[in-house]
């Protein structure tokens, strides 16, 4: 079973106060860990550190392992950590199918095409393969974006406020879609909105510099402190 373990992470910008200090946690496959906290508390910095995309000049220490194998010292593209951002970033010069094919790892040409058509069908987007991403609604774009990330077969999934740009009507539908699609993965969700948190998810509420203020397991009836 895949497990992401993060140990004693510290991140600091050049000539600045640390953004994260001594942060540790682990996420098992099928588990959702939610990180919540005020702006500037280090949530996005944590995701940048995990994906290896910290801005130049930032210093960091600590380790991240997936199934015991260290990944924080690998290039971004070799970590197999999938990322879905607030904006969907569907590439505008590619069709919906090409965006998904871009995510899909190598395989036979027909098999690849078949797989993406099948997953589009499954996502309620049958017949959308050759559409220009610009012609899709926000909810459709969000689904394609998540599918593209999942096509790359990540070992861990990071979600950076992926529902915040969606209108209220579509938000719940996309949440359900996301949890169903990523059920087998360790998932780290960063959000401001408690409504985004699925039942049974572990919640870390953090203060400034990534310090954990409290943690607990969320249920729709109320979160209980651990």
């Amino acid at each position: 079973m895949t497990v992401l373990e993060v140990n004693d992470v510290c991140v600091a910008p050049p000539d600045g106060a640390p953004l994260i200090e001594h942060m540790s946690f682990s996420i098992a496959a099928g588990e959702v860990l939610v990180v919540m906290g005020p702006s500037g508390c280090g949530k996005s910095t944590l995701l940048s550190w995990l994906t290896g995309t910290l801005p130049p000049g930032f210093s960091s220490r600590g380790t991240a392992t997936i199934d015991g194998n260290r990944v924080d010292n690998l290039a971004t593209e070799r970590r197999r950590i999938g990322l879905v951002l607030q904006s969907d970033y569907l590439f505008p010069h590619m069709s919906v199918a090409d965006n998904l094919l871009f995510g899909l790892r190598a395989g036979g040409r027909h098999d690849r095409r078949h797989r993406i058509e099948e997953s589009l069908e499954h996502a309620g987007l049958g017949g959308f393969a050759d559409r220009d991403p610009a012609t899709l609604s926000g909810g459709q774009r969000a689904r394609v974006s998540l599918l593209r990330t999942l096509m790359s077969e990540p070992a861990v999934l990071l979600l950076d406020e992926p529902f915040s740009r969606l209108d209220a009507a579509r938000r719940e539908q996309i949440r359900q879609f996301t949890w169903a699609q990523s059920a087998a993965l360790p998932v780290l969700l960063v959000t401001h909105d408690l409504a985004d948190v699925p039942d049974g998810a572990r919640v870390l509420e953090i203060q400034a510099r990534g310090q954990i203020a409290q943690s607990g397991v969320y249920s729709a009836q109320g979160a209980g402190d651990a």
Binding site: T51, E77, R78, L83, Y89, F102
Partner: peptide, 22 residues
């Protein structure tokens, strides 16, 4: 929005050069 595109490309497993070219 180069930085975001490169970030997505790299988290999808592409090298920096291939992220640029694609």
């Amino acid at each position: 929005d180069v930085d975001a595109a490169l970030r997505i490309g790299r988290t999808l497993g592409y090298s920096p050069a291939r992220s640029w070219s694609r």
